[in-house]
Amino acid sequence: MKQKLIAATLAVGTVWAGWQFTRWRQTRTAELKTKGTVVETAVGPIEYARQGEGPVLLVSHGGPGGYDQIETMREFVDAGFSVLVPSRPGYLGTPLSAGQTISAQADAMIALLDALGIEQVVTIGVSAGGPIALELALRYPQRLRGLVMLAAVSLPYQPNAETADSLLGKLFLTDGFLWLLDIGTWLFEQFSLRFPLPSAKMMIQTESNLPLEQINNHLNYMQRNPERIAWYKALIRSTGPMSLRKAGLDNDLAQLANILQLPLAQIPLPTLIIHGRADADVTYDNAQFVAEAVPDAQLVTLPHSGHLIWLSPEWDDAKNQLIQFLNQHQKV
């Protein structure tokens, strides 16, 4: 009798979980299709989101991601900027055909600006989106007022063995049936929404070389600042369903592994780099490379931060320096 009860409970639990997952996937897919805007450009359809009024910040998002990473940019909207986040090719509603290579993705960004009638922007490269921002600065400097790199890739990139072998690495980087990847991202999202601090601890441990004391400082900072918890939840939400982002992520990994050494000394723009010294994902030498190559580039080093600089107690000061930089170079 006891075994039958356990079996029945497991069966009911499995059916309930399957229903919850199916409802989540259907609801999120419908939501993502309705909240983004798709515009026809010279390179094909590009999906984007835009919030705020004022000078435009064009964000090249990290991976996995999409236009919905705009929800992690609210502090710049609050600071008086218009934030424009396209889904890069292969992510969500922008087909990979809109720009497979890094240079083609830069062309796609310009095609979007042309379609929207936007003449100039400051471009912000976030994590895996960094190389596209660098290409924009090199090839289209007349369309930019400045360049910002946030924990951004600039050198050939491959996930390190520790990251690839971690739970999160298996969740985001493993090939397999897309519905299994969706289940994984759903489970991690549910865990993160209910237990954001343990989830953030797992993420920070994976993507940094920080000692436990510094990781706990991050968690205490989040606990004191609920907007940081909201930021983290928005970041996690922007990773699923993975099936809608996998083409972009796979393409990113292929492109980032073969980054060419660009002539960054030719970038004529005001440039700001913010990077954590303890970043175990996009290592600090990426920031040093850009800072040493781009004339008069400003490097803001966060000594006790990993890849998720936005969750660090050092972020408040870094954000103030970033907003000051943006205000210095704004032009509607």
Rank of each mutant, 00 (worst) to 15 (best):
Y157T: 06
R245S: 04
A42F: 02
T27M: 09
M203D: 03
E227Y: 15
A287Q: 00
T41N: 04
V38Q: 02
S192I: 01
R139P: 00
L308A: 07
Q321G: 09
G44C: 02
L173M: 10
P55L: 05
M73W: 15
G306P: 03
A79C: 10
A247S: 13
K331G: 14
Q266S: 11
L212G: 01
I70L: 13
Y91V: 01
L113W: 02
E189M: 12
Q3M: 06
E40R: 09
A49S: 07
F195H: 09
A115K: 05
V77W: 03
K2R: 13
L219W: 05
E75G: 08
T41M: 02
E135Q: 14
T14Y: 00
E53N: 14
P198I: 08
F76A: 08
G99T: 00
V38F: 05
V38P: 03
L147A: 03
L269K: 09
D250R: 14
Q105S: 14
K170A: 12
Q261D: 09
S82G: 06
A111R: 06
G130H: 10
G240L: 00
A287T: 03
S192Y: 06
Y48E: 02
V59G: 04
F191K: 08
A161Y: 07
T94Q: 01
L197G: 09
V59M: 07
I273F: 00
L256D: 00
V294I: 11
R245P: 00
G125S: 04
F81W: 14
G13T: 07
W231I: 11
A265R: 13
P211R: 04
E47Y: 00
D175K: 13
R74P: 00
P263S: 11
A200V: 02
S154Y: 11
P263M: 09
V12A: 14
G18F: 08
W24D: 06
T37A: 13
M222I: 05
L249S: 14
L57G: 11
Q105K: 14
A106Y: 03
T37K: 12
E71G: 10
L219Q: 02
W186F: 14
E189Y: 10
S87E: 06
W179A: 14
P198V: 10
D165F: 04
S103E: 15
E119C: 01
P226H: 06
G146P: 02
H275G: 07
G176C: 15
D78K: 15
A7F: 07
M149N: 13
T27N: 09
T239C: 03
S312A: 11
G52L: 08
Y48A: 01
P198L: 10
A280V: 05
H218N: 10
L112M: 10
L326Y: 09
Y157H: 12
F172C: 11
R228E: 12
N225C: 08
Q100L: 04
M202D: 11
D316T: 15
V85R: 09
L308T: 03
N258M: 04
H307P: 02
D279Y: 03
G125D: 01
D279T: 04
L193S: 10
F289S: 13
R145G: 12
M1H: 12
H329M: 04
L181R: 15
S87A: 15
M1G: 13
L168K: 11
I118P: 02
Q261L: 05
Q214S: 14
